[in-house]
């Protein structure tokens, strides 16, 4: 969610029980302004917090020219001093998935490791080798934030447009979804490089507006029912919760351009989802 309207948006997304204390809000408002100036971001988003055993991580994202690409992620332990997270590469993702388990500890330099026996070579020359993968928590954090963004970052349809040049911009004439549209899952889109869109047939593409529908809608997610869509606060706020990443809340006030998402949780994917529906 946009850092400028943090004080207002945090309350809207508070339905899942976690908010920011007044002290944290105050320090975020101070430090994010400085952050924006230092890194020359065009916009700073407060992304959320990840609960650790000892400490919590606060995550912010800076946006440069393009809204979707070139996002920079920063983390902080005290809402004041921000540190840049490394971009999540494929090899790093694989390492993290392999080596890390359990909750975040709250110490960025904490190392988790796992050793397995691997057979190498072919035919008679097979050798058993011990392979140890070490991952520190900072890179785990980077991968987790990247994964959550990939699976569960949401925007309402029409809030962003793609210019013919390929740049994604905020749609200044976006006035918000109509309440009946807001109650349907297909009017929300994944804010990531589309995956399913390229596989669609021309017939399906015919109804889509290339400037607006350049993203995957949530209604195509597998398994069905991995989102919980509710109206809160007397039907004025549309709250969308991911059941895959418990703790991710998206909110949109229908008929206003206000929308945003925040993650407040333990940073663990809900792998038991198929059993729980």
């Amino acid at each position: 969610m946009d850092s400028d309207s943090l004080h207002y948006f945090v309350d809207l997304a508070a339905g899942n029980g976690l908010t920011l204390s007044s002290e944290q809000r105050a320090s975020l408002q101070t430090s994010l302004v400085i952050l924006k100036k230092n890194y020359k971001f065009s916009r700073v988003l407060f992304w959320g917090k990840i609960l650790g055993i000892k400490c919590d991580y606060f995550i912010a994202q800076g946006i440069e020219e393009d809204e979707m690409k070139n996002k920079k992620t920063l983390y902080s332990l005290n809402c004041l001093d921000w540190h840049m997270l490394p971009p999540a590469t494929d090899s790093m993702t694989a390492d993290v998935e392999f080596a890390s388990e359990g909750r975040f500890t709250g110490d960025p330099s904490h190392e988790s490791q796992r050793t397995v026996m691997q057979t190498q070579g072919e035919g008679d020359e097979t050798k058993e080798e011990e392979v140890t993968v070490k991952v520190n928590e900072e890179s785990r954090l980077a991968v987790t934030v990247f994964n959550i963004d990939k699976d569960a970052s949401v925007v309402p349809r029409g809030a962003f447009i793609k210019s013919p040049g390929g740049k994604v911009k905020t749609n200044l004439s976006f006035k918000g979804l109509h309440p009946t549209e807001a109650a349907k899952l297909h009017s929300y889109l994944h804010f990531r490089e589309p995956v399913n869109l390229k596989m669609k047939s021309i017939l399906e593409m015919a109804d889509l507006n290339p400037a607006v529908d350049f993203l995957d809608p949530l209604s195509e997610d597998i398994p069905k029912g991995s989102w919980s869509l509710q109206f809160e606060r007397g039907g004025t706020v549309c709250a969308l919760r991911s059941l895959l990443w418990l703790g991710l809340t998206f909110f949109h006030v229908p008929q206003t351009p206000q929308h945003g998402y925040i993650y407040m949780g333990d940073g663990l994917m809900n792998l038991d989802l198929p059993f729980m529906l």
Partner: peptide, 12 residues
């Protein structure tokens, strides 16, 4: 609880 970062929002 708001000091602890837990709550439903004031109006709620």
């Amino acid at each position: 609880f708001e000091q602890a970062g837990v709550g439903l929002g004031r109006e709620e």
